[in-house]
């Protein structure tokens, strides 16, 4: 495991927050995923070792919680809310628009490697439906037109970043 020094520091910091080491499993999974982009088997075993539990105990978590992934995704993660309040306000159209903009299917890495578009369940912002989370940031009232704008912005940022 090749974790950044900062990640290792945070790992050391979080474990003593709990009287039982195993409790730090979710925090460690978050930290390792932020560092590595996804959770590999190596990561599972590393975390298990660190917390003195069995790898199966970590594997059970990785596969239960949808936020953990076992494969890399696109550089940006677009999560469109699928649940009722967003759906009745057009969430499915929003999602279709993102897919069209990046020529990608749900849960895939877009051909340019830029994004992964996913449906997620209620993001607790139903009053401003439809909502979308791009990486850590919530975007409200994202109709198809707004989805196009956001897509353009992502594409623009990708160009600048690549230059």
């Amino acid at each position: 495991m090749n974790l950044q020094a900062e990640t290792l520091r945070k790992i050391d910091e979080v474990i003593p927050h709990y009287p039982v080491k195993r409790s730090a499993a979710l925090p460690l999974l978050h930290l390792v995923q932020e560092d590595q982009g996804f959770i590999s088997n190596e990561a599972i075993e590393w975390i298990a070792d660190r917390l003195e539990i069995q790898p199966i105990n970590v594997y059970e978590l990785v596969t239960f919680y949808p936020m953990f992934r076992q494969k890399p995704i696109g550089r940006r993660h677009i999560k469109v809310c699928r649940t009722l309040s967003c759906a009745i306000m057009g969430g499915y159209r929003t999602c279709a628009e993102f897919q069209k903009q990046f020529g990608t299917g749900l849960g895939e890495v877009s051909p340019d490697g830029e994004v992964t578009v996913e449906f997620v369940e209620c993001l607790a912002s139903c009053g401003t439906a439809p909502v979308v989370m791009i990486d850590d940031h919530l975007h409200e009232k994202v109709d198809a037109a707004r989805a196009r704008e956001l897509s353009d912005k992502i594409k623009g940022e990708a160009k600048t970043a690549n230059r």
């Binding site: 979710l26 978050h30 919680y65 953990f68 997620v120 369940e121």
Partner: peptide, 10 residues
């Protein structure tokens, strides 16, 4: 007080 983050499970 400590903050503990979930990971997407209702």
């Amino acid at each position: 007080i400590y903050v503990h983050r979930g990971a997407g499970a209702y």
